[in-house]
Design a protein around this nucleic acid. Sequence first.
DNA 1: GTGTCGATTGACTGATCAGTCACTTCATGG
DNA 2: CCATGAAGTGACTGATCAGTCAATCGACAC
Lengths: 205, 205
Amino acid sequence: MDEATTQKKDIILNAAIKVFAEKGYYSSRTLDISNEAGVAYGSLYHYFRSKDDILMSIFQERWNLLIAKVRQVREQGSGPEEQLGMVIDFIFRSYRQNPDLLKVMIMDVPRLDKFYNPENWKLYNLFFRGLMEIFHEGQEQGVFAADVSPILATIIMHGAVDATIRQYVYNPEFNKEEFPVEEARGQIMMVLRRGFSKKVEGEKS
Amino acid sequence: MDEATTQKKDIILNAAIKVFAEKGYYSSRTLDISNEAGVAYGSLYHYFRSKDDILMSIFQERWNLLIAKVRQVREQGSGPEEQLGMVIDFIFRSYRQNPDLLKVMIMDVPRLDKFYNPENWKLYNLFFRGLMEIFHEGQEQGVFAADVSPILATIIMHGAVDATIRQYVYNPEFNKEEFPVEEARGQIMMVLRRGFSKKVEGEKS
DNA sequence: GTGTCGATTGACTGATCAGTCACTTCATGG
DNA sequence: CCATGAAGTGACTGATCAGTCAATCGACAC
């Protein structure tokens, strides 16, 4: 795939993110996407097999960035708590940079039947596996409580971040002024750190 | 609305829950619903204005049960931790009794544009308000940490439960045998209790 | 100048479905 | 036993759209 093709695909994907975020996947017309992207209707089908394929491509491309981030954080090798913090930071930063993308990832991607295929699950679970490794390492180092399952810890963490971003994206009564992203990020980290951490008294690490 | 009408509506709603859970809202045909319910196609439109109306009715009816549960728990008046535990229990029990319902509530309801109207937000936030009150009370009693915002605490709790149920419903790699609902419930409660609780050392309640 | 081939175009089509409506059946009560 | 209207029926329709395709463009090669 040459450079120009990659660029054109990217233009279309970004247009699609905007359109899907605005109207939701099912209410979005492929014509809207081509208009937004500034390409002819038919061109969409030159670069992508179908409307579904566009959404799946958004997921795969962007989720890989998340996985890459986890890998990078792991290789960098600071403490487990810092590592989790960096992943959470990355997600919140992604939201600030492109709220539309997060909206699509959270609301549209998981609603598409075609999303639930083995290939995507594998990709999806790669992220969780990365988090679980961090967590497990933390347990071995005595930083995190040993009686919490890494799987559950990961799910809880993901759920907390996901639900918070949902509030930002959707809930009009959720006061964004009083509750800047930074604040939310900090509080989640605080609760999770306490929730996961080994009790402070007299344990040897 | 007489008894018979209420019953018929309920039959249709339960059929719709089953169909929506199976195929997702947008892929479900209203014909499928009438077949499942054992009523004529046209009858749907005798009892409900539209397909949207059916989904919204599911949300409103069942969400009110959740709100009622929170109210009941509050009136019963045990400690804040127990109260939160009872709400979480109720949700997990609902899932065991009727996984389809939870699937629809988590995946289909929030995906419908029409869901986001002031009336529904009011209902939706009533639940959160209830949890926040429990949490706030816990802070005043010195059970929960004062430096965690009740709003965030509520969102984190809801997100954790939501994400866990999602795993049960969707993730084929999530091992339900090894990880029974009871186990998940217990671990979530543990993490949240630690995450929210005031530090144990030398505080007076 | 001509040939080749990928990129681009947008009018068109075939299928899909939510919702309608004219009709029938049923229950109630006078 | 008829009248009234609510409950129930399902064939039909009108609108909607994803995806197709035949035609055109443009870049590069020889």
